[in-house]
Each structure stands twice: as structure tokens, then as C-alpha cells.
Design a protein around this nucleic acid. Structure first.
Length: 644
DNA sequence: GGCTCCTTAC
């Protein structure tokens, strides 16, 4: 567009200021301020391959009279290209040529503005529609909901009902996404009955949205009922229910359903794979993970960052950091989650140096800014990797406002962990007392753990008493505290703590371990009597126990929290689920093959020690993943350095 | 013309 046209366009737009009153003054002022066309080579339309659209746009800029079809085409293009300036010009053109757009075009304008993240402008258009129809309302509700303005969306939905416009399947599918949290469930239920009343409950999109809402608020059973009741299923509804299970930690159910639906012919998309990979990561079901990856490669799905990120996470949680890093290195566009996932991977594997290197790479590239999670992962990597000073330096940078991320309670917690792990109990204790937040159960808990490892009974006793006030229901706290007191011979206090525990009838989350064999998950509970091969497993454990004792293993009886005699304690230790899983793995896998055992809680000291002996005697590499990190045990030595 | 599912940390 030449200079003459630019001038013409500008003066025409300036004219519009006083001519039209149908659009509010602020809007006109805003639009006229955009009246200078951008350099046409920079314009998104300049690279658009449609000559027609280009011609139309230039006509519009020059003030040529336009009709419905022209505006329609242009706005459509503006929406898909997210061309904010171009779209504003199109609206400016309507104003200046006194064109009064029908509802249809005004709805297009709402969509255009919401897609360009200009919600206020969208609302202005919405407010000025003389006869709003169901599409106008839905478009505006969708705009609010997409941008995270849930309550605005709900308010508008209620206004819509009051105004007498009846919602349809589009409206319901949209408005349900604005219901989340506890109050969301309440609204969701009300909307659900409305849906049934108006007979939209058989609609797939509505159903997907509805079941997703139930899943997100924790009502997975209701979600499943909605899913099973759908007359037809599509990828999205299937993904929603799989993801629902995975998000709530029902990993086995998620994976099972995925396999079942796949057999029934479901064609997955990248969201489905990302969702099921979350479950696979939780289970560390390596064989399933590899299979999903090969599916992704075979079907040549485009390299969506979301999918790549979940693959990185899957490999890291299945113990194969090399593959994680390979995918990471091959990515052309990394998001902050990509970097975080890689950092978390190194952190969980105790590879602090590598984590710091990745973080430095992130800073050098300077394409993506670190966020809260980045620093959480970085600090925890320093902590697990024994890099106390490096961690403190990073934290100091945060406190001095040099990182763009303000430290929150979570970051303070990792510093407590860092100091405690390094044996600086007093410093850690002072840090907790001086920090600008009220200490949480997690923070006292990590400090208590450190006191226990480094045998600081005095601070430990104080920390423990604080912890029992905040988290009286957490059995683990009682166990650690009573063991610490026992190790110092303070038997009376041990008795008090144990009595408190019994009195409050605290139930510990049942420990379980599992392994994957030929894509089947075998789960073991302590003293398992349910596994079909329980006899052989028990026999194998006895055999292992004899062999490791010969090699110098001594049972650590303090890991038993029940008040029974020593012989009984020894027997109970051998019933721990990770030992059963280990035994089963030795029985069922060929010699020399690495063993991968997963545990839902933190591994106990005795089992850790036991596994080290097993790795040496049976010549097996053992990958042991517990709740907080990875233990890679080779020839009797663990990557965690005996501290976790 | 306006719909649904999405990866990291606790």
C-alpha cells in the first residue's frame, strides 16, 4: 500500500470520530489510534496466500464500499490469523462507511476480539448488539471462559437465562468449562439437570465437557457414569475420561481404559497420548511408554510440545534419562514446561550438576523465562545432588529479585531441605523461624527427617511436637519421631508418641510396590497374600534373605513401628512390599536384565540396604523409584549416596 | 457464526 493510500485511510478514519454514535467513544478513539496501516511487508496479510483477501483488505483500507460477504471473509481471516490490527481496521471501516452490521457479523467481531485476547473490546461489541442471539451469548461466554474468567462466564450464563434466550449444546459445552473447584461442582450439577431437562445429555461435546467437570472436581465415578451413558464416543470424550483417571492418580484405571478403548478401535490424538503418558509415568510402566512412543513415531504426529514434554517426563520417570535428553535436544520449540520437565528429571535422579547445566543453557538461550517450578526443580536438584552452596546461591539470587521469580513457601521449603540434608540442622532451624511464611507440615517434616538422619534429638523433638500439631493424622511423622527418640534411648518419650499414635487411630497410607512384566503390572502389598504366586515369592524372599545375611546384611529393626519382639520384627521386615516385588522380578526376568521396582511411599532404610546387597549378589542393576526420587543401584552402590 | 480432552512442581 502506498503512502497516498495510507494518508487517505488515516483521514477517513479520523472522520469517523464524530459521525457514529452506535459504537462507544472509547472504542472509536481506540480504533482511530490504530489508523496507520502497518508496513505492508510486516502485515500478516502480506504473507497470506489469498489474493482475494489481500485485495479486499486493501479496498477496505482505501475506503471502498464493502458488503456483508466482504466483511465476513475478512473477519474470518482476521480470526484465523489473529490479525488484531487488521480486524480493528475492518471494524473501523464499518464505522466510517456507516455500515450497520447484522448480528452475524457482530458475533464474528466478538469471536475475533476474544481470540485476540481483547475481552473488553469483545464485551463492548456484545453490549451494543440490539438483538443478541444464542451465538452472541455463547461466543462471549466462551471468550471469558477461555481467558480464565470463570465467574464472569457464569454470571453471563445466568443473565442469558434471565433474558429468555435458551442455551443449546454449544452453550452448555462451553459454560461447563467454567465450573471448577468446589463451588463449580454445585453449579455444574445445576447445569447438568438443566441439560437433562433440555435433552442435550446425549450430545458428545456436552458429555465430554460434563464428564471432564466431574473428573476435575474429583467425582470420577460420576464422570464414568456420564461417559458410559454416551450414545457415541469420540477421541475427546475418551481422552477426557482417561485424563480424568490419570489426574486423580488412578493410573492403573487410566492405562487399562486406554488399552481397552484402543482395542475397541479408538484413534488417539496427541492429547490422548499426553494424557495416558501421565498415567504411564505414574506407574513407571516402561514397556507401555515405549509402545506409546513408537505409536507416535509411526503415525508421524506433528511434534507438539505438549506431547514431547510428556514423553520426556515418561522416560525420566521410567528411569531412562538418556532418552529424555535425546527428545529434549531434538525439540525445535521448547516451552517452560519442557525445561522444567528435564530439570525435574535430573533432580529426581540426583544429578545436580546436569540440572545446573540445563538451567544455564536455558539462561543462555534466553528464549523462555524460568518460572516458579523451574526454581523449585533447580533448588531441589541442588539439594538431592549434594550441591548445597550452589543451591543457596540460586536462592539468594531469587531473594534479591534477580531472577524475576519471587520465592514462595515452596522455595523456602527446598532450602530447609537443602540445609537439613547437608547436616546444618541449626542453620535450617533458624531459617524456618526467620522465614516470612508460617512453616507447613511439609517443611517441619523435612526438617524432622534431617534431624533423624543427623541424630539431632533436641531440635528433632521440638520440630516433631510442632509437626504433630499441624498434621496429627500423618502416621509417618509419629514413626520418624519415635525412631529418633528410640535411637537416643528416650524410651518414656517413645512410649508417649506411640500411645498418641494409637489413640488417634492413625492409618498409614498402605505401602505398595509394583513391577511391569510383559506390559502387565504386578502389585504387591506388605505381607501380600493375594498374589497368585505368593508361595514362590515368599520362598524366594527367604532364599534372598539367607544370601544377603551371608554377605553382611543386618536387618534394621528400627524400621518396624510395631511393638513386637525382635524375631517378629525381622519377619515383618521381610514382608515389605518392595522386597516381594524384588523377589518376583528376580524370579521372572532373565539374568543380568535390569530390574525396575516402583514404590508408592518413600523406601525404608532396611529395604534400601537389602536392595543394595541384592544388586551385588545377584548381579542385577536395580532401578528403584520411590515417592520422592530414583535410586539407581549398581553393584551395591546407590546413586542417592544413602541419603534421600 | 459460537462447543468438549492437554505436559512440569508440591
Amino acid at each position: 500500500m502506498n503512502l497516498k493510500n495510507i494518508q487517505k485511510c488515516t483521514s477517513l478514519l479520523n472522520h469517523s470520530l464524530h459521525i457514529f454514535s452506535s459504537t462507544s467513544n472509547t472504542m472509536i478513539r481506540k480504533l482511530t489510534s490504530y489508523s496507520l496501516p502497518p508496513n505492508s511487508t510486516n502485515s500478516k496479510f502480506a504473507i497470506s496466500n489469498s489474493n482475494l483477501k489481500q485485495a479486499l483488505l486493501e479496498m477496505a483500507f482505501q475506503g471502498t464500499e464493502m458488503k456483508f460477504e466482504g466483511y465476513d471473509l475478512l473477519l474470518n481471516e482476521c480470526v484465523s490469523q489473529k490479525g488484531l490490527i487488521e480486524g480493528q481496521r475492518v471494524q473501523a471501516h464499518m464505522i466510517k462507511t456507516q455500515y450497520l452490521p447484522p448480528v452475524y457479523l457482530r458475533n464474528r467481531l466478538i469471536v475475533f476480539y476474544t481470540k485476540c485476547e481483547c475481552l473488553e473490546d469483545a464485551r463492548m461489541v456484545f453490549d451494543e448488539i440490539p438483538e443478541r442471539n444464542v451465538v452472541s451469548w455463547t461466543a462471549m461466554i466462551s471468550g471469558y471462559s477461555r481467558r480464565g474468567y470463570a465467574s464472569e462466564a457464569l454470571v453471563l450464563f445466568v443473565e442469558m437465562l434471565k433474558s429468555g434466550i435458551e442455551p443449546n449444546e454449544f452453550t452448555f459445552a462451553t459454560v461447563l468449562t467454567s465450573c471448577s473447584g468446589v463451588s463449580g461442582l454445585l453449579h455444574g450439577r445445576q447445569i447438568h439437570s438443566h441439560i437433562i431437562k433440555l435433552s442435550f445429555d446425549a450430545h458428545v461435546y456436552v458429555g465430554s465437557s460434563l464428564l471432564d467437570l466431574y473428573a476435575k472436581t474429583g467425582w470420577i465415578h460420576e464422570a464414568r457414569v456420564v461417559f458410559d451413558g454416551l450414545p457415541e464416543r469420540d477421541v475427546v470424550s475418551c481422552t477426557a475420561i482417561i485424563s480424568g483417571y490419570a489426574q486423580l492418580g488412578f493410573d492403573e484405571e487410566a492405562l487399562k481404559l486406554f488399552c481397552q478403548l484402543q482395542e475397541e478401535g479408538m484413534i488417539s490424538n496427541y492429547v490422548t497420548y499426553a494424557s495416558v503418558l501421565t498415567a504411564i509415568s505414574g506407574l513407571a510402566a516402561y514397556e507401555h511408554g515405549r509402545q506409546v512412543h513408537s505409536h507416535v513415531l509411526r503415525f508421524q504426529l506433528p511434534s507438539y510440545a505438549v506431547l514431547q514434554n510428556s514423553l520426556i517426563d515418561m522416560y525420566s520417570k521410567c528411569g531412562n534419562l538418556t532418552y529424555s535428553r535425546r527428545i529434549f535436544d531434538n525439540m525445535s520449540e521448547r516451552t517452560v514446561i519442557t525445561w522444567n520437565t528435564m530439570l525435574v528429571g535430573y533432580s529426581k535422579h540426583g544429578r545436580g550438576q546436569d540440572a545446573v547445566k540445563v538451567f544455564e543453557l536455558m539462561r543462555e538461550e534466553n528464549k523462555v523465562l524460568p518460572d516458579k517450578v523451574t526454581f523449585l526443580a533447580l533448588l531441589s536438584a541442588c539439594s538431592h545432588g549434594g550441591m548445597e552452596n550452589r543451591g543457596l546461591e540460586f536462592f539468594d539470587e531469587m531473594v534479591r529479585g534477580k531472577t524475576g521469580v519471587e520465592p514462595d513457601i515452596g522455595h523456602y521449603g527446598t532450602v530447609v531441605d537443602l540445609l537439613g540434608r547437608a547436616g546444618q540442622i541449626e542453620k535450617a532451624f533458624k531459617f524456618v523461624k526467620d522465614m516470612p511464611f508460617e512453616p507447613t507440615g511439609a517443611i517441619w517434616g523435612s526438617l524432622l527427617g534431617a534431624c533423624s538422619v543427623h541424630q539431632n534429638v533436641d531440635i528433632g523433638q521440638y520440630v516433631g511436637s510442632q509437626l504433630l500439631i499441624i498434621e496429627p493424622e500423618n502416621a509417618g511423622n509419629y514413626v520418624v519421631l519415635s525412631n529418633l527418640l528410640a535411637s537416643a534411648g528416650r524410651w518414656n518419650e517413645v512410649r508417649v508418641v506411640r500411645d498418641m499414635m494409637m489413640e488417634k487411630a492413625i492409618t498409614k497410607e498402605p505401602g505398595k510396590s509394583w513391577i511391569e512384566l510383559d506390559k502387565t503390572i504386578h502389585t504387591f502389598h506388605a505381607d501380600d497374600r493375594s498374589h497368585p504366586q505368593k508361595e514362590e515369592v515368599a520362598e524366594k524372599v527367604r532364599e534372598m534373605s539367607v544370601k544377603v545375611r551371608e554377605a553382611g546384611y543386618v536387618p534394621n529393626l528400627s524400621c518396624v513401628l510395631y511393638d513386637v519382639d525382635e524375631e517378629q520384627k525381622g519377619k515383618m521386615l521381610l514382608g515389605h512390599s518392595e522386597k516381594l516385588a524384588l523377589a518376583f522380578a528376580l524370579m521372572c526376568t532373565p539374568q543380568k536384565r535390569p530390574i525396575r521396582v516402583m514404590k508408592n511411599l518413600r523406601i525404608c532404610v532396611d529395604c534400601h540396604n537389602f536392595a543394595k546387597f541384592v544388586s551385588k549378589i545377584y548381579e542385577r542393576e536395580i532401578y528403584l523409584r520411590d515417592k520422592s526420587r530414583y535410586h539407581h543401584i549398581v553393584d551395591g552402590v546407590c546413586s542417592c549416596g544413602n541419603y534421600w
